[in-house]
Amino acid sequence: MIAPRYQALLLGAALALGAAAHAAHAADWPDRPVRMVVPFPPGGATDAAARLYAQHMGEILKQPIVVENKAGAGGEVGAEHVARAAADGYTVLMGALGSLSINAALLDKQNYSFAKDFKGVSVATTMPMAVAVNEKVPATNVQELIALAKASPGKMTFGSAGTGSSQHMAGELFKITTGTDIMHVPYRGSGPAVTDLLGGQIDMVIETLPALLPQLASGKIRILGVTTPERAPALPDVPTLAEQGVKDYSVATTYALLAPTGTPAQAIEKLSAAMRHAGSLPAVQEGAAKLGAQATPTSPADTDKAIQAEIEKWGQVVRLSTGK
């Protein structure tokens, strides 16, 4: 029988060996492919952000980064899958911070907590949104649009990609900020909303640039302003809303890489360093620009700050617009 003091010594030695093995394993990370889960179907903006970075990150980390689409429930299926995955750095999420924050505030029940179950790795891209109207709306700038809305409360309409979408909440924030009453018309995605904007069935949208830019040549829509503090590189002649007097309105679609809480710090830092390296490459910067976005990789700490800011902003918008 082993004496108690020797049992304690053996236990201490085993714990020390375990900790050393864990540290060595973390130092060797990654030693197999990493799954980057996209919670939306292939071809969308989130998927594009993931694929823009994945190839280059794989070359930097010397392991494949495999993009896997797990769509459903407005991004919730993929997000929950990653939140419940092993926190070992081998399953991560490329998500839209706005959508995740809105879902956290809007949904009555979630099987995970966006605020508690994820740690920031790095922002991938930041994409301006824009206020666009159909050609029949007699407004050539945002202040004229606001005046029209105030002249006929509840008569003007704005379309969105669906109830609770980033586009919907961007519209609600516009209403709150400008003191206007504009009717929301939800669609099943950005495509149908923009189609009805072109056809004149709705008056306006606040949409991502990839959904709007291909339609400008038709002359059937006008972009009145962009929603970020700085002008969009893809639309250098279009003023921001702030430049047009809407001082407290700032919205960007931010895509970021997230890891389950508890993921080793070494893995998070290596992933983030690979994101920052990839984001500095001309191929990634040019690829982002083609999407109407900018490559804006960040440190884990700055990513956590971006997550918190989005949670606070959209939580307030949800409360003010729905009373939840």
Rank of each mutant, 00 (worst) to 15 (best):
A50T: 00
E172W: 09
S272E: 00
Y112C: 07
A151G: 08
S250A: 15
E269H: 12
A151L: 14
Q55P: 05
A50N: 04
R5L: 12
K313L: 13
Q55H: 14
A309C: 04
P128A: 09
L173I: 07
A130H: 01
A161R: 06
V317A: 03
D302P: 00
L216H: 10
M36F: 07
T296R: 13
T180C: 02
M183K: 14
A293W: 03
G279V: 03
P264I: 08
V185T: 06
P210Y: 01
A211S: 15
I176H: 06
L198I: 13
L320H: 07
K313T: 04
A267L: 09
D108H: 09
A19E: 11
G199V: 05
Y255Q: 13
T178Y: 00
Q63F: 00
P300Q: 07
L197N: 05
P153F: 02
M127I: 02
G315C: 12
A16K: 05
M129N: 09
A211L: 07
S190K: 04
L258G: 06
T163P: 03
V251T: 08
G44N: 14
R231Y: 05
V66L: 10
L148C: 00
V317S: 08
Y112V: 02
T91D: 05
G89H: 06
L17D: 00
G191F: 08
A49E: 00
K305H: 10
H81P: 04
K175D: 11
T178C: 09
A309R: 09
K70S: 12
L106R: 12
A242S: 11
A19M: 11
Y249D: 00
W314M: 05
G189Y: 01
R276I: 05
G179S: 09
G74Y: 00
D47L: 05
H56F: 12
G262A: 08
Y187G: 08
D181L: 03
A3M: 06
H56P: 04
P239F: 04
P128S: 12
V77Y: 02
V205N: 09
A71S: 10
A50P: 01
A289D: 01
L9S: 08
I102K: 03
A26Y: 02
T254D: 05
L9T: 05
E68V: 15
D88N: 09
P260R: 08
S272N: 07
G120I: 13
D31A: 13
P210M: 00
R276C: 11
P41F: 04
P229S: 06
E230D: 12
T254E: 03
G189L: 10
K313P: 01
V284R: 12
H277G: 04
V92N: 02
A295Q: 01
T254F: 04
P282Q: 08
S280C: 06
K119Q: 14
A265V: 09
